[in-house]
Write a protein that binds this DNA or RNA. Structure first.
Length: 860
RNA sequence: GCCCGGGUGGCGAAAUCGGCAGACGCAAAGGACUUAAAAUCCUUUUUUCCUAACGGAGAGUGUGGGUUCAAGUCCCACCCCGGGCACCA
């Protein structure tokens, strides 16, 4: 009874329509796309690769942020398919990772079980939204058939070295052929083992990449992170620093993201300068971007971890320095950053000699100098560097000005470009020239050279986790070696207990049988970080089932190959949170594969678009604690998937941050109801009856105009991703038809075409109903019909409205013939009564005529 | 501190090249239908002032300047909100 009532309330029977068409598309594989060489492949169509950032299938299910980007790409895919492209639009699961493992530890269920369940839930939810993915290409990073190739790519990296001269990766077999020793080769590999200071997180029982540590705590879970030295697998991403910056130029990415990546890589040009340490044969190397301030160096600073600290420290200072080093080591990153109010440091007692003037300057130890950047030592120029300035003031060190700021600049610590002073070797030169001159002089004297430094560090690639890809690496006599191709994939052991060991020993170390390959050979027990699987997933979609290659060469060439553009994926949509990490790592892997000849383009993603965050109804970030989370399942239940899709697109521009609005969902829901009622009228007994207003007649010029305007605008708006205005136009068209006594079949069919990419279920159903009555219409499914052509002749009008202004104020509007000439228009404007009222007794000094728009009379 | 993004009605927003500010939707008010309500359909809706009314005049896109016949749009300075980075020499 109550159910009937609520059924009656429904604007239209979406809960019957939607599952029906989803089943139809599934069954008929409507959205399957063929690869070159496959049956049904149409070589005459150009390709278009539309990619979503694939989700991590969490236990919470989909949130409303997911359908935002996914609907946008769905609309683009459907539209492109209708306008004659072969569209690759796939979906998969980034399913390795910490949450599943931690959930498993808590509940005792194997991550494989929970992951499988979450994947099924996510897939079901996505299907309920009617997305046009080619589900035959579905991938899961935790499938052995998938991570076999993740491991294979790792080995490609492992078996490569970076040739600086040609700036590209080459196989290490070349080095073997040149007769290099094993140690020499291992030192050059793009994947190498090194003892490095790592971010060890006891709470998670793993090390983390710098990028995964936020404010001294783990990004996941918020546990404290400490520094400690460990032997770890590293990837030599720094070798690609230059190319990762240069490659950004050719990409259609938001400028902000490009800048962000470039800043992250942090290229910095300067010079390395050699200072002699007094009383020993030792040299101190420093990196500076301002070699022109060399005469202003009044002291030096070493990072506490610098290898020469012990040697430089005098006996008198040893105890103090040792204490300071211990304190610095114990400090969290947080305490060592700029947020710490005051700088700390101690005098080592040692002195260095300034190479330009032979001056003796003290050497200090301070943790504002980072061991991991440059040489871990600096020359301090307190007159022209904020940090050195602050430190010098605090410890009473001398400050000597060597750059004359431009006139009018009164800054105590001037860091910009000026004129060199107190600098005999290049006195009076502007900063840029001074830099060149001193650098050349240093090179001549063999006291330094031009250098480029990067903020980017090599990528710490190992994790002490269970739920990740095992390394395809074996150990023998303390040396690593690759697992043979034929033995891939290396499948993780079926552990019962995958709890962290509490030490840096990975959980896999508990699988003693698995580790032991033979008496002398054991397996690597670290696993790869979660980024690994997402570094190349876009390539696997191209040929998801291929068991002999990560993707067939021909298919890769077709889908990634491009009209001269560097990137392969034509449109990539996802959140800003991946601005640096995922996008940088994926570009790095792609470039290695490119260098080795495995892929055809130098960049993975040509065009990148970030969808904006959806806030709660209260304008705050959605969170469980605030209780403002919107569950997409509930929205679908109440208003249908088409309404959810349409609303998320109607809220505002895709890239903008915008708040949720339940009333807004109801608004688009009502709009879809209005579209339904163009075709069906409610009978007294609440059944739907086909409207007698729908007739197979010629359309009026007015209706034709609004229809063709709609087709034109919706098409253009989809191409520019302006979905909100496309929907407005369809509303205008619908309003026009609602108030029309006769609704010509051809106009209705056109509207359904325009609506199809946005509300595929409703449009498909209505088109189906329409063709049942009017069999002369092209046979559906609508999703497979080509996009209609708009015709200019229907948009043309005989007359137009021209605004008449006097001194920039609108005074009248005139309806004139479209082909009116300027003089007649001018005359008509001057003749207008409303205009003459305002020009009476005044001199018309100028008349500006903007064709098709306005006339402005300038009077005085 | 630095770097982005953004400030337009009661709200979400729209406005190719500088050319009618507020399309479209929400909310609100009034009307039609109904015994009544819901749903639906129609009308009004930036604001101030003048007019009995038709209608008209002014103001208005964060603030203050500027350029221009004409500025939401371009230039300069500033204020506020959101996000990111954080001693990288």
């Amino acid at each position: 009874m109550s159910e009937q009532l609520s059924e009656k309330r429904k604007q239209y029977p979406f809960s019957e329509i939607e599952p029906k068409w989803q089943a139809f598309w599934d069954e008929h594989k409507t959205f399957r796309v063929a690869n070159p060489g496959d049956a049904g492949f149409d070589a005459s169509r150009p390709k278009f690769y539309v990619l979503d950032m694939f989700p991590y299938p969490s236990g919470d299910g989909l949130h409303v942020g997911h359908p935002e980007g996914y609907t946008a790409t769905d609309i683009v895919s459907r539209y492109r398919r209708k306008t004659g492209w072969n569209v690759l639009h796939p979906m998969g699961w980034d399913a390795f990772g910490l949450p599943a493992e931690q959930y498993a530890i808590k509940t005792g269920q194997h991550p494989r079980v929970t992951t499988g369940r979450n994947v099924n839930r996510f897939r079901g939810q996505l299907k309920r939204l009617g997305f046009c993915y080619d589900w035959d290409r579905e991938i899961n990073t935790t499938d052995p058939g998938y991570f076999r190739w993740t491991q294979w790519i790792f080995l490609q990296i492992y078996n490569s070295w970076f040739d600086v001269a040609t700036q590209r990766a080459r196989p290490v077999s070349e080095l073997e052929a040149q007769g290099l020793s094993r140690d020499e080769i291992d030192a050059r590999r793009l994947a190498y083992v090194a003892e490095v200071q790592v971010n060890w997180c006891p709470g998670l029982g793993t090390v983390l990449a710098n990028e995964e540590v936020v404010d001294g705590k783990s990004e996941v879970g918020g546990f404290p992170v400490e520094r400690r030295p460990l032997r770890q697998w590293m990837l030599r991403i720094t070798a690609y620093a230059e190319r990762l910056i240069d490659g950004l130029e050719g990409l259609d990415w938001p400028e902000g993201i490009k800048r962000h990546q470039a800043e992250w890589i942090g290229r910095s040009e300067g010079a390395e300068v050699v200072f002699r340490v007094e009383g020993s044969g030792r040299e101190l190397r420093v990196f500076t971007t301002r070699p022109d301030t060399l005469y202003g160096a009044t002291y030096m600073v070493l990072a506490p971890e610098h290898s020469l600290v012990d040697e430089i420290t005098t006996e008198a200072r040893r105890a103090v320095v040792e204490t300071y080093r211990k304190e610095a080591a114990a400090k969290s990153d947080m305490d060592r950053t700029a947020l710490a109010k005051t700088k700390t440091g101690v005098d080592s007692g040692g002195f260095a000699i300034n190479p330009v003037n032979g001056e003796r300057i003290p050497i200090w130890i301070a943790d504002y100098v980072l061991i991991s950047y440059g040489t871990g030592a600096i020359m301090a120029v307190p007159a022209h560097d904020e940090r050195d300035h602050e430190f010098a003031l605090q410890f009473g060190l001398p400050i000597r000005q060597v750059v004359q700021p431009p006139p009018g600049n009164e800054e105590k610590c001037f860091c910009g470009d000026g004129i060199a002073i107190n600098s005999p070797l290049f006195e009076g030169l502007p900063t840029q020239e001074a830099k060149r001159k001193i650098t050349a002089w240093l090179e001549e004297q063999k006291l330094g050279r031009k250098t480029i430094n990067y903020k980017l560090r090599d990528w710490l690639f190992a994790r002490q986790r269970y739920w990740g890809e095992p390394f395809p690496i074996l150990w023998q006599d303390g040396r690593h070696q690759a697992v043979a191709d034929a033995d891939l994939p290396v499948i993780p052991p079926d552990l019962e207990d995958f709890k962290p060991t509490g030490t840096p020993e990975p959980p896999l170390s508990k699988a003693t049988d698995w580790i032991r390959v033979s008496d002398t050979v054991t397996r690597e027990t670290n696993t790869m970080p979660q980024w690994a699987g997402s570094c190349w997933y876009y390539l696997r979609f191209i040929d998801a089932g291929n068991s002999s290659r990560f993707a067939g060469a021909e298919a890769e060439k077709y889908w990634m190959g491009h009209n001269g553009k560097p990137g392969g994926v034509d449109l990539y949509v996802g959140g800003t949170e991946h601005a640096v990490l995922h996008l940088l790592y994926a570009r790095f892997w792609h470039k290695v594969l490119y260098d080795l000849g495995h892929v055809t383009t130098p960049e993975p993603f040509q065009r990148l678009v970030n969808q904006g965050l959806i806030l709660g109804e209260d304008g705050q970030k959605m969170s469980k604690s605030r209780g403002n989370v919107i569950n997409p399942d509930h929205v679908i239940e109440e208003y249908g998937a088409d309404s959810l899709r349409l609303f998320e697109m109607f809220m505002g521009p895709l890239e903008q941050v915008k708040p949720w609005s339940t009333k807004g969902v109801e608004g688009v829901y009502r709009f879809l109801g209005r579209v339904w009622r163009l075709f069906f009228e409610a009978r007294d007994d609440s059944a739907w009856e086909f409207s007698p207003k729908v007739q197979d007649v010629d359309a009026s010029p007015k209706l034709l105009k609004v229809l063709h305007e709609t087709i034109r605008k919706v098409g253009g708006d989809i191409e520019s991703l302006s979905f909100n205005t496309a929907i407005s136009q369809m509303m205008i068209c619908t309003n026009e038809l609602t108030s029309s006594d006769v609704r010509p079949v051809c106009v209705l069919a056109g509207l359904l075409q325009a609506l199809n990419p946005f509300a595929p279920h409703l449009s498909e159903e209505l088109y189906h109903a329409l063709t049942a009555r009017y069999p002369s219409l092209p046979k559906g499914p609508l999703s497979e019909l080509p996009w209609p052509q708009w015709e200019a002749r229907h948009l043309a009008e005989d007359t137009m409205e021209i605004v008449i202004q006097v001194n920039g104020r609108m005074r009248d509007k005139l309806t004139v013939a479209v082909d009116i000439d300027t003089d007649s228009l001018k005359a008509a404007a001057m003749a207008s009564e409303k205009v003459t009222e305002h020009t009476a007794g005044k001199e018309v000094r100028n008349v500006i005529v903007v064709p098709k728009r306005l006339v402005n009379l300038v009077v005085r």
